[in-house]
Design a protein around this nucleic acid. Structure first.
Lengths: 216, 216
DNA sequence: CGATCGTCTGGACGGTTGTCAAGACATTGA
DNA sequence: TCAATGTCTTGACAACCGTCCAGACGATCG
């Protein structure tokens, strides 16, 4: 175990394979959904056989939760570049909106998997912890955009982080459903609606009608 | 077949049993979700055995779609009374908001079943037709509230029906998830946010900044 | 009353699932 | 080199699923 040539510690090779298998499972889950994705199908779409799943994961739920947490890490700071590079409120709104539309198109399987898992968490409470953790992360992600928008506009938010996330998520989910089911023109309204929504979430400092419903 | 004593036509008794079995299946579906609800479990929670399902329904999907359409009929005009009895815009907003909160508490299993099915429709396209039909119905239901609110406020909507439904559905789904997973105080924000959202969807006639993005 | 039809039951079938165990393979230690 | 440890494959098991079917039950009608 003390060989100098091997940079990867043998115990970390294990974790590396775990991540590789989980990432391969993520694509299959995004293709078939939580219910239809069996361990054999997940393994068939990977480089391993179906028995290896129980070598790296104790349970099917252990695999799923690991996949979900891994997916969470990929999308935490997805829009941080948009937030940092924006110089005007309208510019931030338009860049954020177009980034959302691009994400619907490019990562549709991952998004529908997320909504599938969130719906399953309403039934089986074993998923609730992981799902609520991701939900909080997405809420913070949205809130960074709203706070930055308020700063650029010289205003202050009039809603809490939860409400801002709920409103945006509703528009996003609707656009995703339209994109996956019907004609290709379902994404056009999303961009305009996000640009229209953001100004309604803030108000000029000193003139805001309501205090924030939930303080950060 | 021409007996005058029998008021129920024998062919309609068949449809009546279909509806009864579908309604019984709805409760089981709302309890276990789409994936876990097997035909045996559905039949076990009803007055019949598991074999009778294929006597009234050709397929499991036929049962599910029938259940979904039946559920649709129960919630189409759920808030029409609120719309009709309102006399002021703020009164309509508060009555509608509290009705939404009551629906989350009283019919949580049905709502989570709906979100489950809508997520499944993103994967299996056999559900898409029925799901999109219900989605359009819910959109019209929300739009009736928005139009009535605009009338009472002497204003006109600044968003289309789809955007109004998407925003409200996002808040509703978030409240439902919080109600089903965490502490009982998850419903308090919903009422206030709905009251705050409605004024942002309309603008005084002649002074609106934007034309409606999607004409009715 | 006996026959017929609609209704319903219980069991059986093939297929799939998660899980596990026994053994093959490789890679590394002394 | 040989043994040992970790890694992976293959096959099997029990349980469950949707579906189908032979037959029992009961009401209706000639």
């Amino acid at each position: 175990m003390t060989s100098a040539a091997v940079r990867r510690t043998p115990a970390e090779k294990h974790e590396e394979r775990r991540r590789a298998l989980a990432e391969s499972a993520l694509t299959t889950l995004g293709e078939l959904g939580y219910a239809r994705a069996s361990l054999r199908e997940i393994a068939a779409n990977s480089a391993f056989s179906h028995g290896v799943v129980h070598y790296y994961f104790t349970d099917k739920l252990d695999l799923i939760v690991t996949c979900v947490r891994q997916y969470k890490a990929t999308c935490v700071h997805r829009y941080d570049g948009v937030v940092d590079e924006a110089t005007t409120p309208d510019g931030l709104a338009r860049a954020f909106a177009s980034a959302l539309v691009r994400s619907v198109v490019d990562e549709a399987p991952m998004h529908r998997l997320w909504y599938d898992l969130r719906a399953q968490a309403m039934f089986t409470d074993e998923l609730r912890e992981a799902v609520l953790a991701i939900d909080a992360t997405l809420e913070e992600m949205v809130w960074r955009v709203v706070e930055r928008y308020a700063d650029l506009a010289g205003a202050a938010p009039v809603v809490g982080p939860a409400a801002a996330y709920g409103l945006l998520d509703g528009l996003f989910q609707q656009a995703l459903l339209g994109h996956l089911t019907a004609r290709p023109g379902a994404l056009a309204p999303l961009e305009g609606e996000v640009v229209r929504l953001l100004p309604t979430l803030v108000a000029p400092v000193g003139h805001h009608r309501h205090a924030p419903l939930a303080p950060p």
